[in-house]
Design a protein around this nucleic acid. Structure first.
Length: 254
DNA sequence: TCCAATGTTTCGCC
DNA sequence: GGGCGAAACATTGG
């Protein structure tokens, strides 16, 4: 009997927690043989035939697939998605992996071959989804960047790998910090909270997504009104990165 | 119909 | 070389 797996890709997929979910879903196929591989990404798909899928790891927004003959790094960028046994209509996948009883499809993502050394070089202490996450190291890095705005620092993948724009906005709202606040203006407890929430909120995001209740738990991202004071939410391009911040100008102070 | 946006890389210019 | 902006990629909802 063919098992129909929970198709998690219906919702937001690109931030770190979703990558871990993808990693978990793909664990199902660990050590299985690739019956066939194809796609629009430029690889020699014939080489995949009869090779083994050895398993996955992840780092931030990177999903790493290991095969017996090579390793692939998948980045879903803004609009990437994947499906298991349920292909999107009228879409040609960047990569399709056929196992004995299942098909896995990857859409609109960047796929790159990486070496074993590169996999080993991923620094998991800066990955908010990793058990090796080092919040003290993050806090120390924050202390060394007084002129950087919090909206930019949270998106920095060299400090908070896996945090994306949704998580950024939700954390800043939760901590009642204005996105354009410079780090030097934050109190020590605020810096500490920021480094704690980067992981804690990401884990919460992971759990909500796993339970299919993610979007309804967003409090500020794409919201019209502040849940606390009822005032209109501000939507503004912020920081050097010029990414949109959603925030309450009344509740979140610089 | 148009446009912004969950992200990153690459290229050209100063 | 650094910093910056634009472009490219590609999908979807408002």
């Amino acid at each position: 009997m063919v098992t129909v797996l929970h198709d998690i890709s219906q919702e937001v997929i690109v931030e770190g927690p979703s990558i871990v979910i993808a990693e978990n879903e793909l664990a199902e196929f660990k050590n299985q043989k690739i019956v066939n591989a194809q796609g629009t990404a430029r690889f020699n798909w014939d080489d995949f035939k009869d090779k083994k899928y050895l398993g996955s790891t992840s780092w931030g927004k990177h999903l790493i697939l290991q095969f017996s003959h090579l390793n692939l790094r998948i980045h879903f960028l803004m609009f990437g998605s994947y499906r298991i046994d349920n292909p999107r209509e009228n879409r040609i996948p960047k990569m399709q992996l056929s196992f004995k009883n299942h098909e896995v499809y990857f859409y609109s993502c960047a796929i790159k071959e990486i070496t074993k050394a590169e996999i080993k070089d991923y620094d998991q202490t800066i990955n908010v989804m990793s058990d090796e996450w080092d919040r003290l190291k993050a806090a120390a890095t924050l202390a060394s960047k007084p002129d950087v705005m919090v909206c930019d620092i949270l998106m920095d993948q060299e400090i908070f790998a896996g945090v994306g724009n949704i998580i950024k906005n939700e954390i800043l709202y939760k901590l009642k910090i204005h996105p354009e606040t410079k780090l030097q203006s934050l109190s020590k407890p605020q810096v500490k909270k920021l480094s704690i929430e980067a992981r804690e909120y990401s884990l919460q995001f992971f759990n909500w997504k796993n339970m299919n209740v993610l979007k309804k738990n967003w409090k500020i991202f794409r919201k019209k009104k502040c849940p606390d004071c009822g005032k209109a939410v501000t939507k503004k391009s912020t920081g050097k990165l010029k990414r949109i911040s959603h925030y309450c100008g009344h509740c979140q102070k610089k």
